[in-house]
Amino acid sequence: MSAPLLTAEEIVVRFGGVVALDGVDFTADARAITGLVGPNGAGKTTLFGILSGLLRPRAGRVSFDGTDITRASPQRRSRLGIARTFQRLELFGEMTVREHLVVAHRVRMRRDRSLLRDLVGLGSRPTLDEDETIAGILELVGLDAVAEQPVILLPLGTGRIVEIARALATAPRIVLLDEPTSGLDVHETEQVASALRAARDDRGVAFVVVEHDVELVLELCEAITVLDFGRVIARGTPSEIRASTDVQTAYLGTRAAEDVAP
């Protein structure tokens, strides 16, 4: 068995006096969709921040394909091949769908580094390779029909897929998704899920999905980590998670009920 792609070990995070994460281990394998779930306040968002580089842990280590990235900035992580999406839709409001992919692809290809060419107008033409790559991604996630539309006119569900497509255009090895289906209806949720599956199967991209919709995670992911009170309480395949009494307790709060029982 190969080593995991993204690993977090013994992560500790404190906010003021509150311990948000208390020695959490997390791994995500290459070419797999890994779920991260837990009740409100369990520390999912904090762990996501650690993985994406928005937060620095008090203790512990994050590594990506053998490289220590605990203190790497979001830009550096992006260049290494870690992309992410946001809980609140963060699209570039003035651009079309295609332009989202173009800018991500060109930054990846370092084509944003030639100011002089840009000023005289030689830097704006798309290359053959760029056109092909972008057309491929658009088709893969099912955005080809709306490629030339300004994103501001798209419904929320499509907007989420644009975010995923933009992440894919940076040629990532792993994409971190922060609640990709919040605010979506059942149909849109299914669209997002199939875009993720397509990207994994076709491109071999790995995903980490932080979600509140446990049902979706059970259906979509190969491996799942469950957090509660800043600790990992379960880890395993969907059927293992379903069977776990610890997980039921965390979600339904029977533990607290037992505390008061005589």
């Binding site: 651009m95 800018v103 991500a104 060109r106 944003d112 840009d118």
Partner: peptide
């Protein structure tokens, strides 16, 4: 013409991205 070129170039796209969402721009590698 130079300004319009700049706007349509990669640099212009990068600036537009940054204007809309600095957070998303940074995680795209900008």
């Amino acid at each position: 013409l130079v300004v319009v070129n700049l706007r349509r170039s990669t640099t212009g796209l990068v600036l537009t991205a940054m204007r809309s969402s600095e957070q998303a721009a940074a995680t795209t590698g900008i």
